[in-house]
Design a protein around this nucleic acid. Structure first.
Lengths: 330, 330
DNA sequence: TCATCGATTGACAGGGCTGTCAACAATAGC
DNA sequence: GCTATTGTTGACAGCCCTGTCAATCGATGA
């Protein structure tokens, strides 16, 4: 079968403990020995056995990604970055899709924590702010990284500057000459996304434009709610010339509503989304949106767990993806 | 810390071996004892330690999902079904995104197989037909389930009746009075999807309609290639009245091409896709498409691994999702 | 009634690795 | 040159389970 640490030790002519030290990058090994060991490892194509490692020590080299986020592209982006980074560091990623927030059965989570004892857990919104879950994880002492977490609570928070990103989107609109800008806001439950609304206000205020409450309508992150919200917005006596939707799905809904009223995008109404989902790319006209660096974000989350870093913030660059739904009115 | 099997054995007043037997559903345990043990397990909230279990026995209770499929929604669907089923059976899912087919570095895979020793591996297309990978997996003796695998090769194949599904789509068109039906075919490399083309022919032949080679153009599964293909199709002297695209992205491209020529969907040209991605739902008009039962498929894959079942076929029901891109010409 | 045989139970030995600790070597300090 | 440190190395125990195998129990058949 597969080579064991004994084989390597024999081949290198050292004790298994020394091999172990080399493998775990522990100090106190002379370079010459280290060299010999590494060569033996190479020669035998030796790979340490994870189960034995975990049983003896306390590291499992496993990281769990928990989510109940309904957007496949968001989850996939995060997952891809995390898995790649894990691989590079000799870790592996376990995925744990949880049921919706209502179903707060703690058993599956406790279960997983006990059987697998992952070295860390990555949470993505809206789980990042699920207090019950956070408390449960804290009881186990498992390091937790909350991506785009917002509320105070146990576990490192990896803040994404959503507020700045929201502002960036609106500034783009303002720079194109729009002054009457509406927003399809995120649902109140999604705390991190609420920051986007704050960014919207920031941009408006900085440009000395009024913040009109009629121009802010909350949606539920799906196409239908975006459509409904936009229908209301466009029926206003003084309708907006541009609409910023808190995610792409709702932006697509906005475009639908516009079309229903016989309005052309972007000639009659400009639209900007958030997330850069595949849908936004394949829509017609292709949606101008804000891209989150999911890949980099989750890679950083893994790093944070592996390095055992405490509370930390990661400033990552959002970028505006200009496509075809914003008209220049200057 | 967490309770061990010894604690359970003590509480139940039996040997640890008996506890082990109960936990693993082995025979030769008297109901009375079984009862006592289960109660002790309950009381201590005991969960067996995966690492120890694997070290001692040969089961890791881990299943690996490997993919390099670029469609987030496809991967997410499969993953969701697999992870849920795993949880129900006491297993866990590891995800391994592989690099594109070109990068055939076997090291990461061997590595993972040796360190984690998963009880099985699930492959999704196009990996399901990656011979190099299949051979490598076979060398390790790890059970493999290939979702929508096509070519002969080692490992159980889980066939999805893509051919029938393709035919279903085209029959839908024919039933609506279309007789000149084009297809944006899948790339030749995607074997499973090639079945969809066969289904297209089947439907045409059964309806005694001619199979015109000019009406079959291959795409690359992305919006652009769908657009290009449709541009060619629509520029034909006798253009089709309906186009069946081998996936949703290309169908969206078809709609784009139609719009560019000033054609209305579905009034002037009907379009039907394949996969039921989120994009198809949020497109305008929403795309009529074929839904694959991804969730059920991957759950079945897990079952196959856990039960140790050999070669097997799973007939799963595709369904036609009628939305707004097919006109009735009768 | 007694040997026989299957059902039931437990003792024990690892599985592959890391933590602990003791042994020993090299270096520094006086 | 000699002791006090610090740096290196290995022996050994043990992590928590399962496989093996022997022991015990109870029932069956002669």
């Amino acid at each position: 079968m597969s080579a064991t640490i004994n084989d390597v030790a024999d081949l290198a002519g050292v004790s298994i403990k020394t091999v172990s030290r080399v493998l775990n990058r522990e100090p106190h090994v002379r370079p010459a020995l280290k060299q010999r060991v590494m060569q033996a490892v190479e020669e035998l194509a030796y790979t340490p056995n994870q189960a034995a490692r975990r049983l003896a020590g306390n590291k499992s080299f496993l990281i769990a990604l928990m989510y109940n986020n309904p957007s496949p592209s968001y989850v996939a982006g995060i997952q891809e970055g995390a898995a790649r980074r894990c691989r590079a560091l000799g870790y592996h990623l376990i995925v744990e899709p949880l049921e919706r927030e209502q179903d707060n059965d703690p058993a599956p989570v406790s279960n997983m924590l006990k059987t697998l004892a992952p070295d860390g857990v990555i949470l993505i919104p809206p789980l990042s702010d699920d207090m019950a879950l956070l408390t449960q994880l804290a009881r186990f002492g498992t390091p937790v990284v909350r991506i785009a977490g917002y509320k105070q609570g146990p576990g490192a928070i990896l803040v994404t500057p959503e507020r700045e990103a929201g502002r960036m989107a609106v500034e783009h609109l303002i720079a194109r000459g729009h002054t009457r800008i509406a927003m399809v806001a995120p649902p109140a439950t999604h705390q991190a996304a609420a920051e986007r609304l704050l960014g919207y206000r920031d941009a408006l205020e900085q440009a000395r434009l009024p913040v009109v409450t009629d121009l802010i309508v909350a949606g539920r992150f799906d196409v239908e709610s975006g459509q409904e919200a936009a229908a209301r917005l466009l029926a206003l006596p003084k309708p907006p010339t541009a609409i910023f939707a808190a995610n792409d799905e709702m932006a697509l809904g906005v475009m639908r509503a516009a079309r229903e009223r016989g309005l052309r995008v972007p000639e009659d109404i400009s639209v900007i989304g958030f997330d850069d989902t595949p849908s936004s790319r394949s829509a017609w006209p292709p949606l101008t949106t804000v891209r989150q660096p999911l890949y980099e974000l989750s890679a950083a989350a893994v790093d944070l767990i592996v390095s055992g870093g405490g509370e930390s913030q990661f400033e990552c660059p959002f970028s505006l993806v200009e496509r075809g739904t914003v008209a220049d009115r200057r």
